[in-house]
Design a protein around this nucleic acid. Structure first.
Lengths: 256, 256
DNA sequence: GCGTGTGAACATATTCACAGCT
DNA sequence: AGCTGTGAATATGTTCACACGC
């Protein structure tokens, strides 16, 4: 590619703002890079090499460079990337230049914690409304927000311009809530309930299931145990794996 | 493959229990199938087709069949899978036949919720110990467990035979906690802190970052908005996408 | 005939390795 | 000399489509 088309820079009003369609795997990593960049900026770096950023983000540098190249790439050969510029670039692509409103439905055990989670506010989101179906919980104040009844969702979604709905209800209630969110015009849902949601085309659902994460770890534990139970040659302990390229002390890859 | 080697069935003590090494993508979906199967069993199904199970788990049937074929496969042609048998099979492979002990470190906002999360207990795990570094929080009782000081971790890890450590501390404390977990012999870690952990080879880390999930959704929102802003031909609204194969009302795939 | 199991085709993602700019 | 950007090679994952057993 000899001609760089930088997709509409943040402040700029000109030209085509159309987003390049990034590979999903890349999209999933951009937030990781962003976090690492903020950390580096705080530590005083104005510039960072792909190697340095890759380490901070826990990936390898080739992958990082390829990911960034999809954004149109702002690196300087022989030098590296301008930290501040890259932050702007990634925040723009991720649509974080506007502070998106988040509605949280289901103020139980988990919902309570999410309502108070500072990481949402500090990373581009505004928890704008809390809902629950249980009248006993309606009216409670958390972090300056009053819990409303879920039936008020449609009105509130418009008033607070909700962009993302978070479902933290029990599984049995989740589909109903999803339907309500969709009816209220929400097209992005983060689902913590352990169930599959049906939504119309055009609505994005991501799922976080805490028990599933443990079960995946359990598999690997089981696997490790079954391997040590069959000592290939020696007595106790492992044989060092040949060809292990991971830098020592680096986060193990356990697929995501 | 003309010869089926069924990897050591649950009750069986004979033969090679060595686990087949499943593709990571498959491992990540098995818990999903397991959940769906439990649901189907509860609904009274004794048998289920790949199509039916796939729908319940939110995947397509070809993928499901290929995944299950890696387990040695227990389906009957013309009929489907025996639900109870498949549950046993998957639980065995995931190492859920033993109730693994989980230690939770960091009893703040999120940690509190995790400590009380019923989904862990109901899906094969035993939250066996709670830790925090803050003396003010030590001694508190949650769900029948007393919060201990994190320095007691090594002793408790052995006593309670902890298999998995869950980190729910602020990012700044997470690496230290990870080191302590590793020193205590824990080889599987689920990290909720927004940072990269360095661990020695052989230790598995999985990460859950709630803000990242929102940021990924934000990207897709941004993208959808930028597409509607450039109406290809007509005025308002979407042109139906040609080639859309997803069954109507089915969960949208937003890569994981 | 029905529905699993699977090879082959396709799609996506990762890694290598190096040309070319600073 | 150093480091990015990227084609080519590899690896992993998904989907198709159909032979084969029930």
């Amino acid at each position: 590619m000899s001609q760089h088309r930088h997709p509409g820079a943040p402040g700029r009003a000109g030209a085509v703002p159309a987003l390049p369609d990034l590979p999903e795997a890349t999209v999933a990593r951009l937030p990781e890079y962003l976090r690492a960049l903020h950390q580096l900026a705080e530590a005083g770096h104005e510039t960072i090499s792909s190697e340095g950023l890759a380490t901070a983000a826990g990936v390898n540098s080739a992958k990082l460079r390829k990911d960034l190249s999809h954004l149109g790439s702002y690196g300087t050969r022989g030098v590296g990337y301008d930290v501040a510029l890259l932050v702007d670039q990634i925040e723009f692509v991720l649509g974080l230049t506007q502070r998106r409103g988040v509605a949280l439905v289901g103020i139980g055990n988990l919902g309570h914690a999410l309502a108070g989670y500072a990481g949402f506010a500090s990373r581009g989101f505004r928890v704008a409304a809390l809902f629950d179906a249980d009248p006993a919980r309606v009216g409670e104040e958390i972090n300056g927000l009053i819990v409303r009844h879920v039936d008020e969702l449609p009105r509130a979604a418009v008033e607070e311009s909700i962009a993302i709905g978070v479902i933290a209800t029990p599984a049995a209630a989740a589909q109903r809530v999803a339907d309500q969110l969709v009816a209220a015009g929400v097209t992005s849902i983060l689902n913590f309930a352990p169930c599959v949601l049906s939504v119309p085309e055009g609505v994005d659902v991501r799922k976080v299931d805490l028990a599933i994460e443990l079960q995946i770890l359990s598999f690997h534990e089981h696997r490790k145990a079954s391997l040590t139970a069959l000592p290939a040659t020696g007595g106790a302990g492992f044989t060092a794996l040949p060809g292990g390229l991971a830098a020592p002390g680096t986060q193990e890859a356990v697929g995501t």
